[in-house]
Design a protein around this nucleic acid. Sequence first.
DNA 1: GTCTATACGACGATAGAC
DNA 2: GTCTATCGTCGTATAGAC
Lengths: 204, 204
Amino acid sequence: MTPRTLDHEALLDRLTGVFRSAGYEGASLSDLSSATGLQRSSLYHRFPGGKAQMAAEVVRRVGNAGMDAAFAPLDHAQPTVADVEAVGRSLTAFYADGAISCLLDTMSLRDHSWAATGGEVADALAATAQRWIEAFAGVASSAGATPGEARARAEDAIAAIEGALVLRRVTGDGAAFARAIARLPTALMGDTKSTKSTKRTTRG
Amino acid sequence: MTPRTLDHEALLDRLTGVFRSAGYEGASLSDLSSATGLQRSSLYHRFPGGKAQMAAEVVRRVGNAGMDAAFAPLDHAQPTVADVEAVGRSLTAFYADGAISCLLDTMSLRDHSWAATGGEVADALAATAQRWIEAFAGVASSAGATPGEARARAEDAIAAIEGALVLRRVTGDGAAFARAIARLPTALMGDTKSTKSTKRTTRG
DNA sequence: GTCTATACGACGATAGAC
DNA sequence: GTCTATCGTCGTATAGAC
């Protein structure tokens, strides 16, 4: 029933699911144990640092390998609208149309045991956010935005997605999430009517 | 030192602060006790339903009285840009420039003890979100948007704020929050250059 | 490398004195 | 209406058999 030996990647995948829906404090070792099929003590064998280490590794994995996969379509000099749309489809799948929360949200609440992690989790979250911002800002830059404007567009596009995930969790309505994804190309690249859009400077 | 008798409103104010930063599960009775200056058992005297009741009352209070106060400037037939800007200032104060999280976010994570609340908290959160959406949609409608478009604009504006709060928590940067607030008038009312803006229908 | 068993503290919640 | 004292449970974490 339980695969006796689960390799590290598969293990992290299972743990990720729990942390995404429950957050750090909400994810108990019992939850993590039943999700992986491993007893609590076995989890400590794999992760001597306990829950904090599990959380940190989960966030790092999603922020590195996970984001590499999602943003692969952007990996060339001049990303197109189609490339951004492909990223949108990846994100829609990753968030299950908005039904699954984001680690940046659920893992970033303050916690007592938080200090015990030595800020490792918080650092991993911040690094993940920065990578995401830079990936999106790169698209905006390629489309002709100034560095500052590119970063602003990237942050706003990410905020639209994160906020839509919150709304979905509260109202059950995923329409805002779908719109945030659909808006992604114009949000990052500006009005894509003209090929080399010269941006309408939104002063302020 | 501890005011012996704290009235219900003041009590809820203190509790609100804890739930906002810690979420439901993260807010322990010890936290709530020290924030209010009341012993755990005294809290149970005031709230026989325990933590679940405290949470539900906190959410309802913020969603009713709190939102009434914040959205007061919109309480007439034809809200102006200045009115929306006033709401923006209220929200900036309420969220302390983005440094304090939103109950819609922190209280909406799934939880084991969640079922014990009988869905009371979840219902209060959903009701609060609906009230917020309707308040913003009213502005968009007054500005000439169709009902569907008004609701979409309202949701997107709220998502921008909620997402910016998440970003701020992770990166420490409040710029996205400031932009979300600054964008509020145009996000809801459209391009306000022409007095009776006839919206650019964003099909979809 | 997984398991059973257990330590020990913090949790939410209650009883009863004042 | 507040307090002290306590209950039972579940939390994280560890020890040691297999």
